[in-house]
Design a protein around this nucleic acid. Sequence first.
DNA 1: ACCCAGGAAATTC
DNA 2: GAATTTCATGGG
Length: 271
Amino acid sequence: MLVFSDVTDLDLAETLVCGQSFRWILQPDGSFAGVAYGRSVKVRMDGSTLYIDGAEERDRELWSNYFDLSEDYGRIRSEISLIHPVLREAAAYAPGIRVLRQEPYEALCTFIISQNNNIKRIKGIVQRLCDSFGEPLPDGNHAFPTALAMSSLTVEDLAPLRAGFRARYLTDAAQKVHSGEVDLELCRTADYGRARAELMKITGVGVKVADCTLLFGMHRVEAFPVDVWMKRAMERLFPGMTPDDFGNHAGIAQQYIFHYSRMHPEIFGND
DNA sequence: ACCCAGGAAATTC
DNA sequence: GAATTTCATGGG
């Protein structure tokens, strides 16, 4: 059991099941069970104390990194709140959202799966992908499969996932990442346009999936993914503004806006 | 039966 | 080149 005290600006429900990660499952006792970096754990908060059950002391840095605990989200909220009053309201609405630092290849695959899909079904496909091809862990869960493990699979092998037309996108991603044709490490440091173009070499990766991969897998917080929800939110809440107007923490602003929009569907109703 | 879902490729105009 | 259609699958 790992314990982090004095944790602020973290709400597990807002952060783990709001559509940035697809492997966390709410348990009957209120904790969240999930796997990251090949570690299967259950996490819960009590006040400002974060408990990670099943984690080892030597992984303290790994989990601190995963939850981005060294970042001061209060300061970031203050800064982005100056950009627009509605952004201030969205950030204040769910101040416990953090941008997780997920594994790059996992973020890539899960957001390939996400296209023209809904979160519930995305989770099911990801679950079957891990159970079928991920390394088994001591408690029966499975790590996210590596690009190596997936590189030898065919679309027929992936049929049980019921991923539909996305199956061939996954095999293409696995092969290009494993071969090095697509360099995920380069995407961490290259200038943004270059990083995005690198990911878009993969069939099935367009601007939006690339932006999500960069934001959630490489922690490129300048990314501002625009999906159907964000497009509506931009039109209704931020008319005339573009992603460039949201600053160097645009990705964090995006998460506040995305969550706020989904929690207020009436904003977009019958015009 | 119809529409939509954290889009992108394929086709058509 | 820009606009439209198609792509599997499942739930409402």
